[in-house]
Design a protein around this nucleic acid. Structure first.
Lengths: 189, 189
DNA sequence: CCAATAATAGACTGTTTGGTCTAATTAAAA
DNA sequence: TTTTAATTAGACCAAACAGTCTATTATTGG
């Protein structure tokens, strides 16, 4: 038994928008990708915008957990979970090749559409708060500001995987990110 | 006496594409923005793509020098010029609000168009080489890899200004980037 | 079984897209 | 001045765009 139609649509739209962007993805492309008729598509979603907003909250949302493995592990200090997660990013080939899907959509849509800005920010805040939690659950030098540090980490990881998408390699990511891990290790006590 | 037509077009296209992206900018928007007839536009540029590629090499190119003030100063060590430049980024409001124009176009177009990838990479390499030069002209800890460090710096600055465009503030940039400057200072001897 | 609703199917529509074309006008060269 | 080329002007075009509409088929509940 095949995947329910609505889910199939969300998967196809996530994939297409991730690579081509919102304005670079047409309804025709979406219909072709998931092989369903137009009537079905507009039965589940009233517009392209609503559809992509659903992708944000129902797909990108989940992808973030899959791409950045930041779940608290009892056996490890928070900062070590974080360091491991940063290294694991290099294993996600699509991430290193195309950058963060949330960051990409953010840059394209947030400046021109408030609804996207809000939806994207919700997910961003969840990610940042997870990192803050891990940092707080760590022995760090007393003057460390975990709020700004968490944003620094996200900025650096996202920045690293956004340098020349479609050619940025795992090797390049690892070299660049070494400086981030050096810095983070220097904050441990 | 007004600006030559071709220059006026490039200025308008830079501005529109910076904010709306390539696919988010239509020829109609461009014509309206610079108030010239279609015939003139297609007299100077044979297509939209060729026009935006000209913006890359003739406008973004120059904007990079204006946004990131990385010229070698005899009186300063390279690393100090670099640190000053990183702070000066916060003064460029549009940069902190909308992110780096090169990075934005790169993420949108490089994965789907080789010509853009090549044009953008040329400018990226110039920027990176400037930073490498500054780093080489500095007294740093002997094991410092200036190649990967230069990419780390670009990744972090671009990442910082790309977090939530249209709302990311100067204050936020300063807080985030403090960690970068801390790390760089720690590399000095 | 039957009625009501959900889902599928795709032809169709008005608008916008990037781009062409011919004619008129201005500027430069002879 | 006359000729040649550069530029301006915008009507026009086919294709692509997001979205609508009516009809039909599955599915579900009573």
């Amino acid at each position: 038994m095949s995947q329910p139609t609505r889910e199939k649509i969300l998967d196809a739209v996530f994939k297409l928008v991730y690579i081509n962007g919102y304005n670079g993805t047409s309804m025709a492309m979406i219909l072709k990708e998931c092989g369903i008729p137009k009537g079905s598509l507009y039965h589940y979603f009233k517009s392209k915008k609503e559809m992509v907003l659903s992708v944000v909250s129902e797909r990108i949302n989940l992808k973030m957990d899959e791409f950045y493995q930041l779940d608290v592990e009892e056996s490890k200090e928070g900062i070590d979970t974080l360091l491991a997660a940063i290294l694991k990013v290099s294993k996600k080939e699509i991430l290193v090749s195309y950058g963060c899907p949330l960051n990409r959509l953010n840059q394209e849509m947030s400046p021109v559409d408030k609804d996207f800005e809000v939806a994207i920010n919700t997910i961003y805040n969840r990610l940042r708060d997870k990192i803050i939690l891990l940092l707080k659950n760590s022995k760090l030098q007393s003057e460390t500001e975990v709020e700004s540090l968490s944003e620094f980490i996200i900025a650096t990881v996202w920045g690293s995987i956004s340098l020349s998408p479609a050619q940025s390699s795992t090797k390049r990511y690892m070299q660049t990110i070494t400086h981030l891990t050096n810095y983070l290790k220097s904050l441990k006590i």
